[in-house]
């Protein structure tokens, strides 16, 4: 190390073989634990070569210290609001700021108890706009495709686009209104599969993949509180 050139006191990037067997610079870039539109506490430690994530290690910080109080499990937190929240995050990261802003506004209206009759129309209009977009399928198809196994939670099957469409369609369903605890079952599973879904993908899709899995790190603390 002594003879090595240091840029501002920081050692230069190391090298490793990439997927084609070429020796390339390898950069260690952590994503999280605090980013806008990112599950709080989630850390993905990536090894990047160029734009490709060669390796990803996932960790959730602060589970032990949490009080086991999940925002979306408190009374008066309708499932509709949670799906609008998840859609808003995914749309914002996909770069569709206006559709995301509408979703956030509707989410807040649901949370503050706007009557169903008043809000159903705007939600339907927003859903139609999202489903009508022809760019969105082109951008999200195949992004964050999860393995199709019996253990895969039904709510998370498919790719980012199928998950977004699932949220949008459930929002149009009048039967969806109250939170049920089983919605969160996806989070521990998603945290487990996340490294394998991220590895080999481009950095450009990493944030989309994470947002599309609707990770709720609060749910992990609830589990922790219950189990031990």
């Amino acid at each position: 190390m002594d003879g090595m050139q240091l840029a501002g006191g920081v050692p230069m990037a190391g090298r490793a073989d990439d997927r084609d067997g070429l020796t390339l610079d390898q950069l260690h870039v952590p994503l999280g634990p605090l980013l806008p539109l990112w599950p709080p506490g989630l850390v993905v430690r990536t090894k990047l070569q160029g734009d490709v994530i060669q390796q990803a290690a996932v960790e959730v910080l602060g589970i032990g210290d949490a009080r086991g109080d999940a925002f979306w499990l408190r009374p008066g937190r309708p499932l509709k609001a949670r799906w609008l929240d998840a859609s808003a995050a995914l749309l914002a990261i996909a770069g569709w700021a206006d559709a995301a802003a509408v979703a956030r506004r509707l989410r807040d209206q649901v949370l503050t108890g706007t009557p169903q009759a008043e809000i159903a129309g705007p939600i339907r209009r927003w859903g139609r706009q999202v489903r009508r977009s022809r760019t969105l399928p082109w951008l999200l198809t195949g992004v964050g495709q999860v393995p199709d196994k019996p253990s895969t939670p039904r709510a998370l099957a498919g790719d980012a686009l199928t998950r977004l469409y699932r949220w949008v369609d459930s929002l149009a369903d009048p039967k969806t209104s109250v939170a049920s605890p089983d919605v969160a079952d996806g989070t521990p599973w998603a945290v487990d599969v996340l490294p394998s879904v991220l590895e080999g993908r481009e950095l450009a899709t990493a944030r989309l993949i994470v947002a599309s899995l609707d990770l709720d790190t609060d749910m992990l603390t609830v589990r922790e509180a219950h189990h031990g």
Binding site: L91, A94, G95, W96, A97, D98, A99, S133, T135, L136, W138, L139, E202, A204, T205
Partner: peptide, 11 residues
């Protein structure tokens, strides 16, 4: 420009 999500490089 506001009506379409960001188009990634590879696309």
């Amino acid at each position: 420009g506001r009506r379409v999500p960001t188009i990634r490089m590879e696309r």
